[in-house]
Computed example of a mutant assay.
Amino acid sequence: MLFWSVISAAFIGPGSVTACAMAGAQFGLQLLWVLTFATFGTVWLQEAASRITIATGRDLGQTIALANQKRGKTVPYLLFFAVTFGCAAYQAGNILGAVSGLSLLTGWSARWLTIGVGAVCIILLAIGSTQWIANFLGIIVFAMGGAFVYVAFGASPPAIEVAKALVVPSYPAGSLLLINSLIGTTIVPYNLFFGSGITQGQTLSEMRLGVWIAVLLGGFISVVLLIAGLLITGGFTYPNMAAVLSERVGAWGGLLFAFGLFAAGFASSLTAPLAAAITGKSLLGWSERSWTYRLVWIGVLAVGLAFGLSDYNPVKIIVIVQAINGILLPVVTIFLFLAVNDRKLIPDGFRNSLSQNLAMLLVVVVSLIFGGWNVWLAVQSLFN
């Protein structure tokens, strides 16, 4: 469980805090079902990606590249650009989330804080000493999650309503962007490559137990974030969210939220650029010492800094970039589905069962419907 908790920590970032709390503030319990779907979707996809590594000794990217070698590098490059685009979108939200947390703590200029956060990220990524920092900040994020658990119980929504909202889909007017955001911030495409890469040396039962417990823990924190959002008045903003914690648990609650938001953003600001570079290494066979590998993480970090130095509303940007990843999700999922069912590469006993295939297809279909719908509305808006 401790080994796999890195996956749940990876999707409890500024995107989860923002999208979940905003969903609760704007739509009450009506979007809880999205978190149920996304949490189980994460389990199904992550388990399949990790099962490939246990079965073959190759990670997900290497397996997909091998399965599509007759097409040359077309499929690996397609997936690499899709995941890297998603990582760049995440990075914009990560930088903005980290700076928003620091702004709440210090009251300093967001522009100078962005430059400072970016400079520290560049130094740490260049020297490669990021793991212990990410682990420490992950502990802070889980502590913030614990405070939200206390606040969520204080919100006291009827248990029967919560249970119903967790399983009964609803689509309130104006919620499409948030639905895509909740999916995209929970089922993180680059986590499939990352999780597959850290599976080496585990048995199938160990991996499954770890994935289920860790992802359900992350899903639980997402649910309590949404329920805590019920208490926000006057519209969702980070100061309003901090005020809710301060009122419920004392002044230290607001400080914990601010530091937790910074910790979530900063830890993710280190992992998203590396995830893009590691995906390229996995799919395209790069060396970690190559300039191509370095240019990828530098480019992803640069995108985040560009958005951080802009005057855009951080909450809106974070919601939008999570939705972008919800739209990109089917691209990665389709190739994962094909790889885990490949009879030439995956031995008997490790390929998907009928129920596992149906579960993965459900994720593809739902994300395609909502993602495609979002794109269609955006195109209509553009032409109108």
Rank of each mutant, 00 (worst) to 15 (best):
S5N: 14
S8N: 07
A9M: 14
F11E: 11
G13H: 09
G13R: 12
T18N: 02
A19C: 06
A21L: 07
A23C: 08
A23S: 15
G24T: 00
G24F: 11
F27P: 06
F27V: 00
V34P: 01
T36G: 00
T42I: 01
T42P: 00
L45Y: 01
Q46E: 15
E47R: 14
I52N: 04
T53Y: 03
G57W: 08
Q62L: 06
T63G: 06
I64A: 07
I64Q: 04
A67H: 06
N68A: 08
Q69E: 14
R71Y: 14
P76F: 03
Y77H: 08
L79V: 09
L79H: 10
F85M: 11
G86V: 10
G86W: 10
G93M: 06
L96H: 02
L96F: 04
L96W: 03
G97D: 07
A98H: 00
L104Y: 03
L105D: 07
W112M: 05
W112P: 01
G116R: 01
C121P: 01
I123L: 15
I127M: 06
S129T: 08
F136T: 13
L137H: 06
L137E: 02
I139E: 07
I139V: 13
A143D: 00
M144K: 09
G145S: 07
G146S: 11
F148A: 12
V151T: 07
A159K: 10
V162H: 05
A163K: 10
Y171P: 00
A173I: 05
G174H: 04
S175Y: 05
L178N: 09
I179W: 01
L182Y: 00
T185A: 10
F194R: 09
S196Q: 12
S196G: 15
T199Q: 15
G201W: 05
L204T: 11
R208C: 12
R208H: 14
G210V: 04
L216H: 01
L216S: 03
L225C: 02
L226H: 03
G229Y: 07
M241D: 04
A243D: 12
V244C: 04
E247N: 14
R248H: 15
G253A: 02
G254K: 05
L255S: 08
L256N: 03
A258G: 06
A263E: 05
A267V: 02
P273I: 02
L274C: 01
L274K: 08
L283Y: 09
W291R: 13
L295V: 04
I298E: 05
G299Y: 01
G299I: 01
L301R: 07
F307S: 12
G308H: 04
Y312D: 07
I320A: 14
I320M: 10
V321A: 03
N325K: 06
I327Q: 11
L328S: 10
P330Q: 11
R351E: 10
Q356E: 15
L358N: 00
M360R: 13
V363Y: 07
V366T: 12
V366S: 08
I369Q: 00
F370T: 13
G372W: 05
V375S: 02
A378M: 10
V379K: 06
Q380G: 13
L382F: 15
F383D: 05
F383K: 06
